[in-house]
Amino acid sequence: MPKLSVRNLTKRFPVSGGPSMTALDGVDLDVEEGEFIAFVGPSGCGKTTLLRIIQGLETATSGEIRIDGKPVTGPGHDRGFVFQQYGLLPWLTAAQNIGFALEAKGIPAARHGETTERVLATVGLKGFGDRFPHQLSGGMQQRVGIARALAIEPEIMLLDEPFGALDALTREILQNEMLGLTERMGKTILFVTHSVDEAVCLADRVVVMSPRPGRIREIVPIDIPRPRASLGEALRDTPEYVAKRHQLWTQLMDLV
């Protein structure tokens, strides 16, 4: 049984004074436990909407989501979400932002400190717990967002363009860290990106989506052996990487 299965998922948004807008149309996807799935596609093809429905932030117009075979009806602590932007509460420190998720999960306050320190260390932010978001760089803020999702120990992580707003260098550093992190933890991960490079580096399979209406165009397996983190820059020189990057790039070019 797949860890996550998406069946015939459709989402229509009402449009005032016009026909409704179909953001997702008949999306089908099975994700195995421990798999890393990347979603790419032109903006407006429904990537965010799909992730939000899986998280339970949005309800589908029709279709079904199952986790371990059980239908999903709303948000759950089995899923950890990382937002693209505005993902931290600006009036809480980094540690308090993580504590927020722990408190929401019902974990006693006495255990927050230990967990918070552990996840902050995991994302390389040891000692930054008492900083407010505006005292952290964009990359550090996203790390806090990832740390918070890790803190609740979800079975599935959902990341919506987590590095989308970052500069190229920070982005590449975080990509490499993400690779190490996910390969160590082996969690099931759904990762939206607009970077083909990022998708090929990180994913086991890349889902290519097309807009109007949002559909899955193709699912491309990436057969670069793991662990890839140890390859470093050499990863980008492997024939599989070069070939898949080219294939995805061409496909995306056809879509826009």
Binding site: Q55, L57, P75, F83, Y86, L88, L89, L92, F100, A104
Partner: peptide
């Protein structure tokens, strides 16, 4: 965006009032 954080992590109504 901030309300979504509360929703995504299943914060109680009281938490949403007090912390968001």
């Amino acid at each position: 965006h901030y309300l979504d954080i509360g929703k995504a992590f299943m914060a109680s109504r009281f938490m949403v009032y007090r912390q968001i």
